[in-house]
Design a protein around this nucleic acid. Sequence first.
RNA 1: GGGUCGGUGCCCGAGUGGUCAAAGGGAGCGGACUGUAAAUCCGCCGGCUUCGCCUACGUAGGUUCAAAUCCUACUCGGCCCA
Length: 440
Amino acid sequence: MEGMAPNALLADLEARGLIHDSTDRAALEARLEAGPITVYVGFDPTAPSLHAGNLLPLLMLKRFQDAGHRPIALAGGATGMVGDPSGRSDERNLLDDDALARHLAGIVPQLRQFLDFDRPGNPAKLLDNRAWTVGVSYLSFLRDVGKFVTVNQMASKDSVKNRMASDQGISYTEFSYMLLQAHDFAWLYENEGCEMQMGGSDQWGNIVLGLDLIRRKTQGSGFALTVPLLTKSDGTKYGKTAGGETIWLDAEAMSPYRFYQALIQTDDAEVRTLLLQLTLLPVEDVETLVADHLVAPHLRLGQRRLATELTTLVHGASAADAAGAASDVVFGGDARGLDASTLAVLAHEIPTMAFDRARLDDEGSLVPLLREAGIVASNGEAIRLLNQNGLSLNDSKVGPGAVIERSMLLHDRYLLVRKGKKQVHLFEFSDSDEARRERG
RNA sequence: GGGUCGGUGCCCGAGUGGUCAAAGGGAGCGGACUGUAAAUCCGCCGGCUUCGCCUACGUAGGUUCAAAUCCUACUCGGCCCA
């Protein structure tokens, strides 16, 4: 990627469907061919973690860096205090200082991990717009920024127009947001030589206002490039699981395993787009993969690759391997033959219940253990389940009267318990403290 | 305040003295099918020490051999009148 010519970059982005809109395309092409350019994308700390929807603009920075350009990831410590009205139908709640600090602490490392800050020639930068915003007085902001922008201009932006037309209206605070963003762009232009801002398509108005400000203040010119908002085939915004759960990038908020699962469950119709837009796989590879996928959709090759690529990108290769292995076990795999370390990973990813090894000596212990683990709600349900052939221990079906024997334990420790096809629990048996002490 | 109708299992909703753990539907859970989807089909679906027992039909009493079903009080909700 390192030596890729700039116009090749644009062509690649085009092929991936990553260009929603841009200012003067020919001029941009010429500018990219002329040499490295500095580009930035802003991320407001609206939550303690970025989510899947943020991946696309974040990866844009990476794509530009990989093509030899200088990326700036901008954390919106200042803009996050105000709230961007773009793409929203209602007023945001203001964040208090604590929440803002917490959110920033969460997303800054995430921004960091996607870019290379030590790359010779074009290292990435991570800036926080608080640095040049908090010290600015209201009066000077009005004089130095406000004077260059007309309200007519601001009011004509979709983000504002839509809200003006709504019952709820728009607060002066959120109305002012675009000025802050424009100010950021202008500041970066003057101080960091940043010529281009990228963002989701809903950012177009804000970005262009920044360009206007730059032109009027400095007679300079820059570029805007927006990426499409990721949407699912049903038109809704991407970034949530089928169940409506947000796909967080933070491992605490969503474990790598669940992240991987969220991606595995991608619709066939969306696989190609997501592979193109969210991974760094070459376009030809994606096309080959998609072709293979269509031949045998049940293998879910596309989904697997997507899940692996993104989990690796976000959580690292070993986490991706573990999530993949755990996933294979849960869906269709066989517990027997798993090594201890995979089982240990599994113990973190699926519901796991620890039991005292002594419980194994009780012949009738299966039903109570199932109950304690929350697998069944009553003895009656346990018996029903067994009668209906719905329970398996270490992937062999068991019927009424089944018992857990020590010899069944995997690595003398684990028992994989499946209820039906989708519910998987792990039992982990260990010695009680007393037993351990007695043995010395 | 008066009248009236009603409060049933996770939800909706039948049932008006025994054959009622209570029809039917939904949700949920198994099974088949399948691509970790949807649809469809089958089974289950109060608890327990499960051929029996216990707990349940707003709450508390009562009548009866027997009550979700009848009576009384209370309570909560809908509607109508004031």
